[in-house]
Simulated scan of single mutants.
Amino acid sequence: MALLALLVALLASSRAFAHGLPSARLDVDVVSNEEALLTLDAPPGARLKLEAPAGCSLTPVSPVSQRLRCTRGVTGSELELDGLGLDIDVVFARLRTLEGDASGSVVTKQSPRVVVPGQPSRWNVVGRYARLGAEHVLSGLDHVLFIVALFLQAIVATGGSLRRAARRLAKTATGFTIGHSLTLTATTLGWLHFPSIVAEACIAASLVLVALDIGRDSGRDEGESKRAALAGAFGLVHGLGFAGALQETRLPEHAVALGLAAFNVGVEAGQLLLLAACGLAVTALRFSLPKSSALARVVNLGAYAVGGTGAFLFLLRTSTLLHR
């Protein structure tokens, strides 16, 4: 009952959803070495305010736009968004250099600053998009639960052996990676267009399906191959969700392929961190719950939590889709 109450409280919070946070948009366009145009698109009544750095000034141009002037040049100046966490939790910033290269950034209460861009180096592109990929996986409830479900399925199928489960997950994770890489690349490059709300509903449905599959594996090689193919199919759907996050920030025009590859690497790193955390949790449970039946009950609770959450998210997102 305590676990159920915690789950309900988690779902009741808007912060529990990977794509449902109140958000705003900031466009930063460098128009000369000393000037940049800032456009802040926020919901009416939002208490957001742009603060200019030292040596710079802000001049209103329209109700939503301001001109930033810096005598020493705008490139590298740090803008601060005051009021984050009151009405708006996240701001998606689109940054365009004087040369026309576009990139993106995510601004939160914990990281409330935006740097006016110059031409980003390739190492900056790699670091920024790898971090964004890892953050998207680790902060999205649906993606986290899907990885947890894959881990639980492998643990049950291998009788609790972490070593055998790791070998099994290598096959499953490969299928999932191939699937989400295909749709992520196709959507980001504009080859595929798919409504984000439909993709999110499908991601929620994948949680229910993978939860139902926990404990139904015979452990034979052909069973592993089928589940790797199934993980690949689920990966196609999750890749659409990853692409939604990437499209919010925009890839730099001079390094599209590099940014896309770095984002994929970040996604994989986030998944590996989740799987490592699951392995440590199982190891700790074995010391605190020496009976194998106790561990099996914990796995069953995890399966019900994943499936129940997936069903809730599916109904919520389907309802949103039907009422549009």
Rank of each mutant, 00 (worst) to 15 (best):
L3C: 04
V8P: 02
A12I: 03
S13T: 07
R15D: 15
R15W: 12
A16D: 05
F17S: 11
A18D: 11
H19E: 07
H19K: 03
G20N: 08
L21E: 13
S23F: 11
L26R: 00
D27W: 09
D29P: 00
V31T: 15
V31P: 06
S32A: 10
E34N: 12
D41N: 13
G45V: 06
G45W: 09
K49I: 02
E51V: 14
A52E: 08
P53H: 05
S62E: 14
Q66E: 14
Q66G: 03
V74H: 05
E78T: 09
E80V: 10
L81S: 03
D87H: 13
D89C: 06
V91G: 06
F92Q: 05
S103W: 02
G104N: 07
S105D: 14
V106D: 02
K109A: 14
K109V: 12
Q110V: 11
P112T: 09
V114P: 01
V115S: 12
V116T: 10
G118A: 05
P120L: 04
S121W: 08
R122D: 12
W123H: 09
N124H: 08
N124P: 00
N124R: 12
V126N: 03
V126T: 04
R128T: 15
R128I: 03
Y129V: 07
Y129W: 05
A130C: 08
L132M: 07
E135V: 07
V137C: 03
V137E: 05
V144P: 02
L145N: 09
F146W: 10
F146Q: 03
A149Q: 06
I155G: 06
I155H: 08
V156Q: 13
G160W: 02
S161H: 10
A166I: 02
A170L: 13
A173P: 00
A173Q: 07
T174K: 04
T174Y: 08
F176A: 02
T177S: 12
I178D: 09
H180K: 00
L182G: 06
L184I: 04
L184A: 03
T187H: 08
L189D: 03
H193C: 01
I197Y: 08
E200N: 07
I203K: 01
A204M: 06
A205N: 00
L207R: 05
L207W: 01
L209F: 14
V210G: 09
R216Y: 13
R216T: 15
D217Y: 07
D217A: 15
S218W: 04
E222D: 14
G223L: 05
E224G: 13
S225F: 12
S225L: 13
S225A: 15
K226A: 15
A228K: 10
L230V: 14
G232F: 07
L236T: 00
V237L: 15
H238C: 04
L240F: 07
L240A: 09
A243Q: 02
G244P: 00
G244F: 11
A245K: 00
Q247G: 01
L251V: 10
L260D: 04
A262G: 10
N264P: 01
G270R: 06
L274W: 10
L275E: 11
L275M: 14
A281V: 14
T283F: 12
T283S: 14
A284E: 03
L285D: 09
S288A: 15
K291D: 11
R297W: 10
N300V: 15
A303N: 01
G307D: 10
G310P: 01
G310I: 01
L315S: 13
L316G: 05
T320E: 15
